[in-house]
């Protein structure tokens, strides 16, 4: 880890330089050309840069998947854990070290299938950390199997006759489970994604940002979705920005997605409540 200028010393004239945040010694990275996860990573680093987060106090926890592999490239305290468990790991890390800014990077399989339980309970608890859910509708890392977000009828290696399962809407699930900040953005709109991530990270409580990402190499090819630019432009057709939510009433596809901040609630943060309660009871001489 080479010495680089402290974040405060970097030029703040809007000239965000991603290299300041990357472990350049690990380049070239493993991602396929055109993979949406790389765009999401850029947006995250841009957001952290604008928020002037101190890298030394930043912990990035990631699960297993192409999404999970991105964390290693970030020049911070990075933890690449088990499949589906980054939120549970991060819960322990944050409770032990509330001084750290904790960001979790996960995939649709990681957070909505194998880690679905942890996702629900993290939303319910409201511990101060941010989940970035890179939704590419597929298990990219393992070669393109169906995921809980694969669009109906699409082909994957385990749905050779087309997907017959309905999808999870991660943002709806997050809201139902009580998350206090929920947003969605597509890689198409990188600056918007950066702004959304800034809001999410600054939010005091558990925040979820679903990123509409693309697996070009596997999902894209299998379903003839075109090359990377074509897949990104397709996001535009399918997207319904939150601002237009009530004016555009015809869905563009079976599961149209709304973007922007979808929910923001005021609810006490987990550790604040825990500390306040245990302190008060302790002073009275113990709990029940």
């Amino acid at each position: 880890m080479n010495e680089r200028p402290a974040p405060e010393k970097l030029p703040r004239d809007g000239s965000f330089d991603i290299r300041d945040w990357l472990r350049l010694e690990l380049m070239p990275h493993f991602m396929c050309p055109g993979c949406g996860h790389g765009i999401a990573l850029r947006a995250l680093l841009w957001a952290l840069d604008e928020l002037r987060v101190n890298k030394d106090d930043l912990a990035v926890v990631s699960g297993i998947g192409c999404s999970g592999r991105t964390a290693a490239y970030i020049d911070a305290n990075t933890f690449h854990v088990t499949h589906g468990r980054p939120l549970a790991f991060a819960t322990g890390l944050k409770l032990a070290r509330p001084d750290l800014t904790v960001v979790v990077i996960s995939g649709d399989g990681d957070s909505l299938a194998i880690g679905g339980n942890h996702f629900l309970h993290a939303c319910r608890r409201n511990l101060d950390m941010t989940l970035i859910l890179l939704n590419n509708e597929i298990y990219g890392m393992t070669g393109g199997q169906v995921s809980p977000t694969t669009t109906a009828e699409r082909f994957t290696t385990t749905t050779p006759f087309g997907n017959n399962e309905p999808v999870f809407d991660a943002c709806e699930v997050a809201q139902a489970a009580g998350a206090t900040f929920v947003g969605r953005e597509a890689t198409l709109q990188t600056p918007n994604l950066k702004d959304l991530l800034k809001d999410a990270i600054a939010h005091h409580g558990f925040s979820v940002v679903e990123v509409i990402s693309d697996c070009t190499e596997i999902y894209g090819r299998k379903n003839d979705l075109g090359n990377s630019p074509e897949m990104i432009l397709a996001q535009k057709r399918e997207m319904r920005p939150e601002a237009y939510r009530n004016t555009v009433d015809t869905p563009f596809r079976p599961n149209p997605f709304n973007t922007g901040v979808l929910a923001r609630r005021d609810r006490p943060e987990y550790l604040d409540v825990y500390r306040a309660r245990t302190e008060a009871l302790r002073r009275q001489g113990g709990g029940k």
Binding site: R85, A96, N117
Partner: peptide
């Protein structure tokens, strides 16, 4: 929420 989460959280706290 379960023992899987408990163990993961313990490893997280320890790495902290």
């Amino acid at each position: 929420e379960d023992e899987i989460a408990s163990m993961a959280a313990v490893v997280g706290a320890s790495m902290g």
